[in-house]
Design a protein around this nucleic acid. Structure first.
Length: 531
RNA sequence: GGGCCGCUAGCUCAGUAGGUAGAGCAACGCCCUUUUAAGGCGUGGGUCAUUGGUUCGAAUCCAAUGCGGCUCACCA
C-alpha cells in the first residue's frame, strides 16, 4: 500500500497529507508536531490530538515522505491549581506558581509532578502504535536553548505587542515585556520584568519579596516565553509543517491566529493546522476529573476497547466534530461496527465500491502496526456471545479460547485481547441485567416443589441423553416436554430453570445456552434437584 | 460581541467529489407450544430545524433565521 492512495474522496488524514505537501512544497523531511502541558492526567480528549497527528504522519509516510513526529511536553508551564484527589494537597499548595517540573510528585510515581503525567502517556502510546519523539520544554528552557528566541522576542517587543493587541479587549501596557521570569528566590512566577538592557540582561522584581535582580538570559534557567510567543518561536525552531489544535486555539483571535503572525518575527512560517473537537464520555459512571467532570484516559479506554478499536474510534470520525466514547451498551455496537469494517476489508461482505474503498482505508489506519496489517480477519463472534462465554467460564479467558475449536493461530492474540476487554466491560460497566454466573455446587439450591424438581430432573435426563446429538431447535422440544409432562406452564418452567442455573428469572435463550454450557456443567448443577 | 460545531426515523447516530434517504436499538409482525436488553426472517416509520437562492436535480453548495452546545476576547 503506497502510491495507490486516492487524492479525493479519501480519508481526512490523506487529504491533510496532500494539503501539507501542496502548501509546504516537496520537502526532504516534514515535521509534524503536537504537545500539551502535563498539568494533570492526560485524558482521552488530549489523546485525540496525538492520534490526529499520528494518522497524518502515517498518510505522509505512505506517500513516501520522511516525517519527524515531535511531541512537546510543556513542563515549564506554571502550576496553577492543585487537582482534586491528589495526595498531600497542603504540600502541593506550597508549589503553586512554580513550574510544574519543580513540583513534587506526591503519588511517588516519578521524579516530579510533570514527569509522572508524562511517563504514563509515554508508556501507553506504543500499545496503540504511536511513537513520537518527545521534547521536554523545561529542560530546553532551563539549559538556555532558546536564548536566541527570547532575545528576538525582546528586540521585537513592540511588533509583538501590536499583534497581540489586535484581539485583546485591553491593550498590553507600555512597560510589558514578551518574557516571563521565575523568581530565583522562590521559583514562582509572581514577578514583573522591569527592564532589558538591549542585550542579554533582564532586571525583574520578585513581587512577593519586593526584591530586584538582574539576570543574564544566556545563563539563567528562569526565563521563558509566554504561550502566544512560545508556540510560534518553537514552530520556527523546529520547522513545524503540521500541528493541529483544539478549538480554543483554532478560533478567531485564538493563539493560532496571533502565532501565525508572530512566527514571522522568528523567521518561520505557520504550520498547516486543523481543528479537532472535544471528546465526550458516555456511560462511565462517576469518574471524577481534576475539574470535576467525567474524565477518562487512554488506560481506561484500552480496558474495554482493543487497541485497533481505540484507533478505529478516532479514524472513523471527523476530527472537527465532537463525539462520545461509550462505556455502556454501545460498546457492543462499536465491536460489531469494527467487525463489519473488517469483513469489508477482507471482501467477506459485499458493498458498493465507494463504501468499500472508504472502509478499507479506515481499517488500515486502525491497525496498530501500519507495516503489518493482518492477513486474515479476527475470530469474529458477536461481542455479546463472548460475554456469555466468559460468564460461563467465570472470566477465564484461556478456557474460553480452549472451548472454541476453530480459532486459528493468527487469531489467538487478538481474541485474547478482545476477551480481556469483554471481561473488563462486564465486570466494570455492563448493566446488572447483563450479568450472571452459573450456579456453583456450594450455592444454596433454589427452593422448589416436587413437581418443579421432577421437571428439572427430567430436563437433566434429556440433557444427558440427547444434548450432544441434537440441534438447538431439536433440543428445545425436550425443554417443552419436561415442562408439559409435569404440568408446568412453559413460562414458569423457564423461570425456575434460569433460577436453578444462574439464579436469575431470565437469561440467554435457553436451548442454545444449555448447549454452550455443555452436558457436564448442566448435569452437575441440576443434580442437586433430584425429585 | 467574534468564531466554530450540531440540528436526519421514537432513541443513538452514519450519510461533504449534488443524482431515488441509511444502520443499530426500540416498535410492530411472523417462525419452532418459545420466556429473554442474547435466535432467525420481515414490516412500518423521516417536509433531512426553518426560509429563500444556485441547479435539470440539494440532507449535501450559497445566504439568512431559530434552537442547542463549545470557544476566544484573562492565562496557558
Amino acid at each position: 500500500m503506497s502510491n495507490d492512495v486516492k487524492k479525493e474522496g479519501a480519508h481526512w488524514a490523506d487529504q491533510m497529507a496532500e494539503r501539507i505537501i501542496r502548501e509546504k512544497g516537496d520537502k526532504d523531511m516534514y515535521t509534524c508536531a503536537s504537545g500539551i502541558t502535563p498539568s494533570g492526567t492526560v485524558h482521552i480528549g488530549n489523546f485525540r490530538e496525538i492520534i490526529t497527528v499520528d494518522l497524518v504522519v502515517r498518510a505522509l509516510r505512505q506517500r513516501g515522505k520522511k516525517v519527524r513526529f515531535i511531541y512537546s511536553w510543556d513542563d515549564y508551564d506554571v502550576f496553577r491549581k492543585v487537582p482534586k484527589n491528589m495526595p498531600e494537597p497542603e504540600l502541593l499548595e506550597k508549589y503553586l506558581r512554580k513550574p510544574i517540573t519543580l513540583v513534587p510528585d506526591t503519588t511517588h510515581y516519578a521524579e516530579n509532578y510533570a514527569r509522572a503525567n508524562e511517563v504514563r502517556v509515554e508508556k501507553i502510546l506504543p500499545a496503540v502504535g504511536i511513537y513520537p519523539e518527545y521534547l521536554y520544554q523545561a529542560e530546553r528552557y532551563r539549559s538556555n536553548r532558546y536564548v536566541k528566541g527570547i532575545k528576538t522576542a525582546l528586540e521585537h517587543r513592540d511588533e509583538i505587542r501590536k499583534i497581540l493587541d489586535e484581539y485583546r479587549t485591553e491593550p498590553l501596557k507600555e512597560d510589558w515585556y514578551p518574557v516571563s521570569v521565575f523568581s530565583s528566590f522562590t521559583d514562582k512566577d509572581n514577578t514583573t520584568v522591569l527592564s532589558w538592557d538591549g542585550e542579554y540582561g533582564i532586571t525583574y522584581r520578585d513581587d512577593d519579596l519586593g526584591k530586584e535582580e538582574t539576570i543574564d538570559i544566556r545563563t539563567t534557567p528562569n526565563t521563558k516565553l509566554p504561550w502566544r510567543i512560545d508556540w510560534p518561536m518553537r514552530w520556527a525552531e523546529e520547522n513545524v509543517d503540521f500541528e493541529p489544535g483544539g478549538k480554543d486555539h483554532l478560533t478567531e483571535g485564538g493563539s493560532y491566529d496571533t502565532s501565525k503572525k508572530v512566527v514571522e518575527i522568528f523567521g518561520g512560517k505557520a504550520p498547516v493546522s486543523m481543528r479537532y473537537d472535544f471528546i465526550k464520555l458516555k456511560g462511565m459512571g462517576g469518574k471524577i476529573s481534576s475539574s470535576g467532570g467525567e474524565v477518562a484516559d487512554l488506560y481506561d479506554v484500552l480496558e474495554i476497547y482493543t487497541p485497533e478499536i481505540v484507533r478505529y474510534l478516532f479514524v472513523g470520525t471527523r476530527p472537527n466534530s465532537e463525539f462520545a466514547i461509550s462505556f455502556d451498551l454501545d460498546v457492543l455496537k462499536i465491536y460489531e461496527d469494527y467487525d463489519n469494517c473488517e469483513r469489508i476489508y477482507f471482501g467477506l461482505l459485499d458493498v458498493k465500491e465507494q463504501r468499500r474503498e472508504k472502509e478499507k482505508r479506515i481499517y488500515e489506519l486502525s491497525q496498530v502496526d501500519s507495516e503489518n496489517i493482518p492477513s486474515e480477519p479476527g475470530y469474529q463472534v458477536p461481542f455479546r456471545h463472548l460475554c456469555n462465554l466468559l460468564q460461563i467460564y467465570e472470566g477465564d479467558v484461556e478456557k474460553v479460547i480452549a472451548s472454541l475449536s476453530d480459532v486459528t493461530p493468527g487469531q489467538v492474540d487478538r481474541l485474547r485481547t478482545r476477551l480481556t476487554c469483554a471481561w473488563n466491560w462486564i465486570t466494570k460497566y455492563a448493566p446488572e441485567d447483563f450479568k450472571w454466573s452459573l450456579a456453583k455446587s456450594d450455592d444454596e439450591p433454589v427452593d422448589l416443589n416436587e413437581k418443579e424438581k421432577k421437571a428439572l430432573s427430567d430436563l437433566k435426563g434429556y440433557v444427558n441423553e440427547h444434548l450432544d446429538e441434537c440441534s438447538e431447535k431439536e433440543f428445545s422440544e425436550y425443554i417443552y416436554k419436561a415442562a408439559s409432562d409435569n404440568g408446568l406452564e412453559n413460562a414458569e418452567f423457564f423461570r425456575i430453570t434460569y433460577l436453578a442455573l444462574i439464579g436469575k428469572e431470565k437469561g440467554p435463550k435457553l436451548a442454545g445456552f444449555i448447549k454452550i454450557c455443555g452436558k457436564d456443567r448442566i448435569d452437575s448443577i441440576l443434580s442437586r434437584y433430584q425429585g
